[in-house]
Amino acid sequence: MPKKLSRMSDAEIADVARKMFLGGLPFLPLCWIVASVWLFKAARERGPRVPQLRRYHTYCMVGAAIWFVISTAWFSIFVTQRLHWGAVGDKLTVVQVKGI
């Protein structure tokens, strides 16, 4: 069962942070988002003692932010431009929206 974060040892929590960062690499920003929120407090408190934890936590936050920018940019481009793309835009759309 999942352990409470406050009960993990320093080495363990660093390992968890590392694993969550690595786990987020294959296009899984959600994993990074979870890690950034979940480990936030621990990283602030234990950061000075456990540099690895702070490092991976920063990576996770940066990665999540990058993905957020990418996906927001893509989706806004899609929503505003899909009508100009013609057939390609229609093919990309999951459910054809009526009206517009």
């Binding site: 920003p29 996906s71 899609f78 899909r82 929206v97």
Partner: peptide, 14 residues
Amino acid sequence: IPMDYITLVFGLWN
């Protein structure tokens, strides 16, 4: 909601 397959697949994968 106009949604494209790329975002959908990405979201579901996550």
